[in-house]
Design a protein around this nucleic acid. Structure first.
Lengths: 188, 188
DNA sequence: CAGATATGTGGACACGCTGTCCGGATAATA
DNA sequence: TATTATCCGGACAGCGTGTCCACATATCTG
């Protein structure tokens, strides 16, 4: 059984990931070509494509651990992020945590959406299920339409625009997002 | 002075616009190549590139009149869309109007963002200024961060996802957006 | 109504990126 | 050390983009 990874393959995988992380941090994802990553990692094109069929899968791999960490805290962590607090407070905590994640890795989130739609990623499904559960718990009417509305401001393009072009601080953005938790009460 | 457009040039321009409108309605914008448009319009590549340097500019040209119409109604139309109504009602009316525009032309809006960022388009600046003025009029604290948060759900990807994948009706989406107008009151 | 001129036209061209493929190299195993 | 399965990496073809220039044609002039 080939369940054991060969030593040189493992070495190359870490090289690829490190090189990609560096490149994604330097320029916008679309300007990073597969060739660039292969060159920077000191690896041939074929080797790169064997493991990662496109840029998005590399960004996803880089992003994976950070997202899993937050997902774990949402499911089983301390309140108000985890279970136990009122829905509105949990939503506010979720927003704050997502701002933290975007602050550190927005370029990766952006990179993970190259080519495919933001909504097709597994992570979006998780965030969606979480917020939808909060809406249901709060008794908000018509949660299905509201979920994506509440999630939309967390798109990496929006966050990067607010941070880079407008020069807003993460605190200000979190504050604005917190305003949305009022929507849990439903319209007047 | 050559301010007069030559007859054959005008004819070709309408041909290009008609062909492009048809193609954009049929398939996702990224799958429509400049070559496709040129072929469908019965025009050479050079002719196409002379007028429109990329797909986005064609979509913008197609979208222009619809956007101008809404912008005109926002500035000088009847309340609650135009001036005169309370900010929260004007925001709700704006949302409803944008849903109407997206319902008819979301593929064009999507096409107009190919390559460039959504925020770089002139239209976004207009929507942004309008909503910001409403927030200021309502005395909402920190309008600069909130504007883009309130505009984010109007991204064409979000709307198309809600309509196509989730199968939501325009009415349900408008309803969910209306919920956001509560944010004008600021956090509790 | 010709001739002159400016403008528009359309296809050929070079470039860059993508994704695949296969001969050679190398690690794992006996 | 010999064998074998796996991995590596560069070459290759296909596609889309954007540019360029010889030719065609509308518009202007005498």
């Amino acid at each position: 059984m080939g369940s054991m990874e060969r030593a040189d393959a493992a070495r190359n995988r870490t090289r690829i990931l490190e090189a990609a992380a560096l490149l994604f941090a330097q320029r916008p994802p679309h300007d990073v070509t597969m060739d660039d990553i292969a060159k920077a990692a000191g690896v041939g094109r074929g080797t790169l494509y064997r493991r990662y069929p496109d840029r998005a899968s590399i960004a996803v791999a880089l992003l994976d651990e950070h997202e899993r960490d937050l997902q774990e805290r949402l499911l089983r962590g301390e309140p108000p992020l985890g279970p136990g607090a009122p829905p509105a407070e949990r939503l506010a905590a979720f927003y704050a945590a997502m701002v933290g994640l975007l602050e550190g890795h927005s370029h990766l989130v952006l990179g993970s959406e190259v080519g495919r739609s933001r909504f097709e990623t597994g992570a979006y499904g998780f965030w969606r299920a979480h917020v939808r559960a909060l809406l249901t718990a709060a008794g908000t009417p018509g949660p299905d339409a509201l979920v994506d509305v509440l999630l939309a401001p967390l798109a990496p393009e929006v966050y990067l625009y607010q941070r880079t072009v407008l020069g807003l601080t993460p605190e200000r953005i979190t504050e604005a997002l917190t305003t949305l938790t009022g929507a849990l009460r439903g319209p007047e």
